[in-house]
Design a protein around this nucleic acid. Structure first.
Lengths: 373, 373
DNA sequence: TCTCTCATGGCAACCGGTTGCTAACCCGTT
DNA sequence: AACGGGTTAGCAACCGGTTGCCATGAGAGA
């Protein structure tokens, strides 16, 4: 017992040497009890002016800040919210992260962030940590393969989160059906792709190279469906040889375009399912000595900030990523924790810039009035 | 008293209805005490196989996860670390964030993120929150005006953080002198700028437009010093008219370049102190019908991933941003909390791509073998 | 001057964990 | 059978806060 007391005393002494003050230190210095300090700081509860002054003086003297973790345990304290994405480096992810972060701090919440590098194990591990943190909401971001395993896994996650009072928000991911306790914020992948492909088709392009994403991946599939649907609407049937799968990376776009050129594939336009992919494609086209849009037209998807600084400025589909992030936290935090669970679908729209040529107008000339923005 | 008991009981009942189990619920279900459950989960401390099995069965049955906040209060638990930046949307910030996040999770730490939008108030507010969170380290990122107020404010922050056991890390920011309890991770702004400007000067450029950042801002100043120093080394004296201040944004680069052109300023090269600025400048040059590098050469700074997808691919200065982030957490967490406080200076290097023309070689021809990567 | 009332502050229980110490038990010895 | 040693599990204190309830004291009204 004595030894225990000594070591405890040491611990506290060290803590004090470090200046790590507790609410009781403040109380002692102000000559009041800890409860009074707590109440003064909380601001509710009536406290006489004199006491308040003494307490505040002590607080300032010790530069005291209440331990947020202890507050949380006691039931006070601001909730945290967590944001899990594949890679913060991707511009569209960064935009969403920004939206989430802004809205979270506007609402006075802290924001934990994790990137999983596409690793499902990692994702599970993070969700478990967030569950331990009792985060108010966990926002999972980015497309995924919509398989039965995916749905199972997500449903399990959703339920385990609900069991500790958190909510799961799926942002730009496949929904799970009506039963799961999940908030879903999506945008219209297919609609946007259809619109931009229609734009290409309307300008006379008939052979459009589709640089798709990974097969099975929801974002990729949605955009590919839009491509197909745009053709179908016009009674056209796209050549399967023009559809080439790959990653959503710049390098993948570069390599696939080079390959397509080397294979002698014929096309008048490229629809890159991501602006990053488009950037790679553009460089490959340039390197092959082709003019864009003179020789080949190009369209992207995402409208990342850089899209207009490519040369030519990229025609693409605008996705309200930042808004998506903001909405994710707003709906997660604002709505009834026991459901009904909302499902929002945000719209997208085509941003016309300079990378698509109108084949109908001039049969020969290259630069057909493409400039400005 | 009775009423209190009733309301408490209600609270607990609600918690249970939600499935929010505590360690005592697990203990009850396993027929052991809470301490035993704690020890089984901690893994240290000898526990008989039979007991362990019973406990684990109960844990799984209830899908129990210990509350991380309570653990933290009790002195166990993994520390958190915080990352404060201006805007996660900027590619270089995103890279650093990525490095920080990767290293943090590698070390098993959670990672809080806040963006301040350049607002000093916000920054202070965040630091205070982090102090309340008892974060292991707070990493402040991005250049700042190196004024006496800045140093005061940072020193105060550093000390207040130290008083609760956290550390302050300044990443790519002005250091504070030897006394402050601060870890500093910098990179060589001036050296990189000098190198890339020397590159331009060596290729015969004598009138280089400098698109600087905000006056007083450390990053901007450092890069501007490099520009001046490169000239001085060759016994040259840059024309002050060629130095134009602004923001580190794409739009600022665009506008300033347009303006310079409209003003009839003469230059054969542009040194944009940021790749974002370079992107804007490039678009402005293109719009003016100028060929890069045929008519005007262009160099940037940061080597953001997009730099090579500009057309022409941008010659720029590579900054090891991701490494910077990684190092920030490693040094913050790895070293003695009571000092000495480390100060690292990382090197940068020029990445030569296709946006700079050699004026010495061909007097007339435009495209002098610029291609490939 | 004596209540009555209300403002104010403290006690102690509680949040959900961890951990030092000790008691109980099981086992093999002598 | 008593003893000693090593396991194993529980009690209770503790981490740093919050909050329900009650005691105290001062001012007001009678």
């Amino acid at each position: 017992m004595e030894k225990g007391d000594v070591s405890r005393a040491m611990t506290r002494r060290n803590a004090h040497a470090q200046g790590r003050h507790t609410i009781r230190d403040v109380a002692a210095r102000a000559g009041v009890s800890a409860s009074t300090v707590s109440r003064v700081l909380a601001g509710d509860y009536p406290v006489s002016a004199a006491t308040r002054t003494r307490v505040m003086r002590a607080v300032r003297a010790l530069d005291y800040v209440a331990d947020a973790r202890a507050k949380a345990v006691a039931g006070a304290g601001t909730p945290t919210l967590a944001f899990v994405l594949d890679d913060i480096t991707g511009p569209s992810f960064a935009l969403m992260a920004h939206g989430v972060e802004r809205e979270a701090t506007r609402l006075g919440h802290l924001c934990l962030v994790c990137s999983t590098e596409g690793d499902t194990e990692q994702q599970l591990a993070f969700v478990e940590m967030m569950r331990a943190q009792r985060a108010a909401a966990v926002i999972l971001v980015g497309g995924a393969a919509d398989t039965p395993e995916y749905r199972d896994s997500m449903t399990r996650i959703a339920e385990s989160l609900r069991s500790v009072g958190s909510r799961l928000v799926l942002c730009g991911r496949p929904p799970l059906g009506h039963a799961a306790p999940v908030t879903v914020i999506e945008y219209d992948n297919e609609g946007g792709a259809q619109a931009v492909c229609a734009h290409l088709l309307a300008r006379g392009h008939r052979r459009i190279l589709l640089l798709a994403g990974k097969p099975g991946h929801s974002t990729s599939e949605g955009r590919a469906r839009g491509y197909a649907e745009a053709h179908r609407t016009l009674g056209l049937d796209p050549d399967p040889a023009l559809i080439v799968a790959g990653d959503f990376t710049r390098d993948s776009g570069y390599r696939r375009t080079r390959q397509a050129l080397a294979d002698g594939l014929e096309f008048t336009a490229v629809f890159a399912t991501t602006d990053m992919v488009a950037a790679g494609a553009l460089t490959a086209l340039h390197e092959a000595g082709l003019d864009v849009p003179g020789d080949v037209s190009l369209a992207g998807y995402d409208d990342i900030p850089f899209a207009r600084d490519l040369h030519p400025a990229l025609t693409t589909v605008h996705v309200p990523y930042e808004e998506l992030g903001r909405l994710a936290v707003r709906t997660a935090l604002g709505s009834d924790p026991d459901g009904p669970y909302e499902h929002l679908l945000l719209g997208t729209h085509v941003v016309v810039r300079d990378s698509v040529r109108d084949l109908r107008a001039s049969a020969g000339g290259a630069d057909s009035g493409a400039s400005g923005g």
